[in-house]
Amino acid sequence: MPFLRILLVRLLTTAITLAGVAVIVFFVIRVVPGNPIAMMLPPGATEDDIARLSALYGLDKPLLTQFGIWVAGVMQGDFGTSITTRQPVLDLVLGRLPATLELSIMALVMAMILGGAAALTGTRFRGGRTEGAIDVANGMALSVPDFLWGLVLILLFGVLMPVFHISGRVTPSLELPFTTNFYLFESLIRLRFDLWADLVAHMFMPALALAIPLAAIIGQLLKQSLKETMNLDYVTLARTKGYGETRVILREALRNAALPTLTLVGVQFTFLIGGTVIIERLFSYEGLGNMAIDAVINRDLPLIQGIVILFAVIFTGVNLIVDLLYTVLNPRLRHG
């Protein structure tokens, strides 16, 4: 079974990748200037105070010893305690993870809808003005980074035409009945569409800002690939069967053309998740990225380590899902 084999190989490489990430993040954040103790103490603290606090957080020990203690903890599921909030790092990051996952997946869905629509429309009316207009729009979407799109959207839909919320994840005055942090998902399960609408109104702009550049990439690549597929023999044969051009594109070409796009979407989706850090900050969205910036500002070393490790897990997970999807979509790989 190739599924199982891919899974096993991937789990092994993932473990190696994560170990590497752990080493790099641990030592890099300790080598760069600035330390958490200096952030915690008021100006003019004595050498004694610094030494006592350092000892309290174990920062007085040699680097290698510190690393050993941290790794030993991680092996038992203990990622340490946040220096700023004094809560377990694992609880903090897992509490924020659902918000970022929901935002990223929303953005991905938007990007696929927008990019897919652009590619299909461009292919349907290829060689004409419609395709030209789509190419121009794609170029614009690609050449502006996500955080600038965020500012543009805030101006458009937050200030000029205030239809969406520009900050936060949910209106603070609302009573939330949720037991998990997957608010968007749970509001659907509980059939609380009022809450769902409020969540979407908050998420719409940050998700769209993240989605626009990815949509452009999907649109461009999928259109290219569709146009090539439209010249293949089986597509020509389908035309002689009496089908209209739209149906030929959707049923004969789309699935085969989507394969090369899919691999790229996987890679680009990890960039999108990276983009959440700044976008969440811009929209004061309570996710991992926002927390990461706070952690870096406060030099909250254990929290930074936890967040980076979690991001690494997400990235490798996304790549694994893409590989598995590829075998599902391409029947030729299934028996290989």
Partner: peptide
Amino acid sequence: PLAQRRRRIGALCALIPQDPLTALNPS
């Protein structure tokens, strides 16, 4: 018009293509 032409051809005609390796949809 294109759609009508396709329909008429589809109902009355068929093609046996040259290369059987590329004329069937792989998916």
